[in-house]
């Protein structure tokens, strides 16, 4: 088991390296001089100063050398400085925005998993009943509605028309931190983030449970006279949950995509909002750092899922 975990982590690190290479070379294709990523536009510099800087940064070297230099800096925690935002170090900006993003994504995913499992069970048990049909229709709409559209509609209805939710942000600015303040700002974006993913998990849970319900041991249990309710809750759901666990990893990964839109509609101070502004301003060091952080997050989520799955399902060969 330990060996398995170590190997998964090793593979994850390799993947992250490959990703950093991909993003590094991609961003070098971007128009403009990479040197400008290292210069504060507000500080005056002569041509000679710039040439000297170019040499000291190794920007006159061939690309693979530049990558190795950059990687060294990155590993030691120096991701460069943002081109805008007062030239703050990228690592600081990332640290400040990871927390809010995690909060939004984890609470959204948690809600999605809870709702999804419940809806999936109801759908499978009352197969083709009115509840199933309505849930199926809702989940189809959920899958087909992009996060920014549900976010807009949610903002329009709950904040613009009903005034139930604040217009955006994470808490009252400058006010001492209160849990209720945070929760009231979190509720709407987290629910909207959950909306799209609930559908996916519900579909998966429903079909997984249906499959289990057709298996022999369930039929046997039923034949032995175990009540239907008990069979479903005790035997079927537990078995059906197994494949759903694999989905949790990809849910956390998918949450990143949805969170970008939701953060930018709700002005939530997370990674997504930061990435979008960075792309608008072509702030390459920040784009690079943000991409790596998101990649690490997704890889980590996948490793955790695999490990959890290996723990839960003894049939998986480990090692």
């Amino acid at each position: 088991m330990t060996l398995y975990v170590v190997r998964r982590i090793g593979a994850g690190i390799l993947l992250l390296l490959a990703l950093s290479m991909l993003v590094f070379f991609l961003l070098r294709l971007a128009p403009g001089d990479p040197l400008s990523s290292y210069i504060d536009p507000m500080v005056s510099m002569t041509e000679q100063d710039m040439e000297r800087l170019r040499q000291s940064l190794g920007l006159d070297q061939p690309l693979p050398f530049q990558y190795i230099y950059w990687l060294g800096e990155t590993i030691t925690g120096d991701l460069g400085r943002s081109l805008q935002r007062n030239g703050q170090p990228v690592s600081e900006l990332l640290m400040a925005s990871i927390g809010p993003s995690m909060l939004l994504m984890l609470s959204g995913s948690l809600l999605a998993i809870l709702f999804g499992i419940v809806i999936g069970i109801v759908g499978a048990v009352r197969r083709d009943g009115p509840a199933d049909v309505i849930l199926a229709a809702l989940s189809s709409v959920g899958v087909s509605s992009p996060a920014f559209l549900t976010a807009l509609v949610g903002l329009y209805v709950f904040s613009g028309v009903l005034h139930w939710a604040p217009a955006g942000g994470m808490q009252e600015p400058g006010m001492p931190f209160t849990l209720s303040g945070l929760l009231s700002h979190l509720a709407l974006p987290a629910l909207i983030l959950a909306f799209g993913q609930t559908a996916l998990i519900a579909r998966y849970m429903r079909s997984s449970l249906l499959e289990v319900l057709h298996q022999d041991f369930i039929r046997t249990a039923r034949a032995k006279g175990v009540p239907r309710r008990k069979v479903i809750l005790k035997h079927a759901v537990r078995n059906a949950l197994l494949p759903v666990v694999t989905l949790i990893g990809s849910t956390l990964g998918l949450a990143v995509g949805g969170a970008i839109f939701i953060e930018s509609v709700f002005n939530w101070p997370g990674m997504g909002l930061m990435m979008v502004t960075a792309v608008e301003a072509r702030d390459y060091p920040l784009i690079m750092g943000g991409t790596l952080a998101v990649g690490a997050w997704v890889i980590l989520a996948n490793i955790l899922t695999d490990v959890a799955y290996a723990f839960i399902d003894p049939r998986i060969k480990v090692g």
């Binding site: 403009g32 510099m45 805008q84």
Partner: peptide, 19 residues
């Protein structure tokens, strides 16, 4: 772009007029 992005573009070194 926002003000910071605007300033970063117009005062970029070296200047890139295509932006």
């Amino acid at each position: 772009v926002d003000m910071a992005g605007y300033n970063a573009t117009i005062y970029a070194k070296p200047i890139d007029p295509s932006q």
